[in-house]
Design a protein around this nucleic acid. Structure first.
Lengths: 160, 160
DNA sequence: TCCTTAGGTTCTAAAAAGGAACTTACGAGC
DNA sequence: GCTCGTAAGTTCCTTTTTAGAACCTAAGGA
């Protein structure tokens, strides 16, 4: 199976990863959350090749994760900003931060990146909680349900 | 910059993505959460080439995300199971599921994958909350702090 | 006129991914 | 003891992607 075919699958994880699941895209988005907006800045900060950066930024604009905003008229210059869909990726960056802090620092060689929650003023560990009962969510307690999908022919049900 | 060099960076997102940030790894992990454990099953479900699957599974074992467990003695057969670090990736899968459900289904062509939280019995939308004050977390309220890193030479501070 | 800045595009070589066939080690059936 | 089937890979060859460096364009300033 070719990679781009994943975008048509019924599984939402496959569709998300068809946009986000390559070696640079989530790093670009991380930097966008750190207020990076311009081509040159992304390129210097990430060390990505200009060619790839151009390709990835255009893809993200095409997929409505970033938008181009003109910030100078002559010569015309555009910067890249997170759209509403892009801002909604913050949880992805946050859980990757916490996983890296916790599980990829066994020898203690990296100072953890701590996050202060400004409204309450404390260093925070984010927790995923159920919107209904408020309890912390764990894999073993979750049951996937795909009502309509059950009525699709099995060839369209894909993975999940 | 080459991809594998990211694993040494001080940013935990870069270190996480040095393991998870390619086209197949998170899909393999998604299927592991769906109880897939054997080489043949991963291959059939994902449509990944056998070569790549072998490479990715070995890498995940090497990085302590999966472990090989013998399930048959003769001939010796092993299956791949999530380690503690692997199980800790559930939030990543969950937030990607929700983002895909919400933002990659504009034409309504995909039935959303709904998740029932078994202990309370309701369909849930997971929410990221602050461990200290319990409020929902948003990008604009978070301040990254890297105490010790501030004392490192700037060449070692990398991106964040 | 020449230099600088921002945002790319072009070129070539190297690395990674895709696809199909082959291997190994066993057990079962005939 | 021959053939088939299964699980888990490995090999070989082709096609795509990436990496890295150089080049291009359009405008402003010294």
């Amino acid at each position: 199976m070719k990679w781009h075919e994943l975008g048509d699958m019924s599984c939402p994880v496959a569709r998300s990863l068809a946009i986000l699941g390559d070696r640079w895209t989530l790093l670009i988005i991380r930097n966008a959350f750190m207020r990076t907006r311009r081509f040159e800045d992304f390129q210097k900060q990430l060390g990505i090749t200009r060619h790839l950066l151009s390709d990835r930024l255009n893809r993200l604009v095409d997929k409505n994760v970033l938008k181009k905003v003109m910030y100078q008229d002559s010569p015309k210059r555009y910067e890249y900003r997170l759209t509403e869909a892009g801002l909604a990726l913050y949880p992805v960056i946050l859980v990757l931060t916490q996983w890296g802090n916790t599980w990829l620092n066994e020898k203690g060689e990296h100072p953890p990146l701590e996050l202060v929650h400004e409204p309450c003023g404390h260093k925070t560990d984010s927790q995923l909680r159920c919107s209904e009962c408020g309890e912390a969510l764990h894999a073993k307690d979750m049951i996937p349900v795909m009502d309509e999908a059950a009525q699709l022919p099995s060839s369209r049900r894909d993975i999940l």
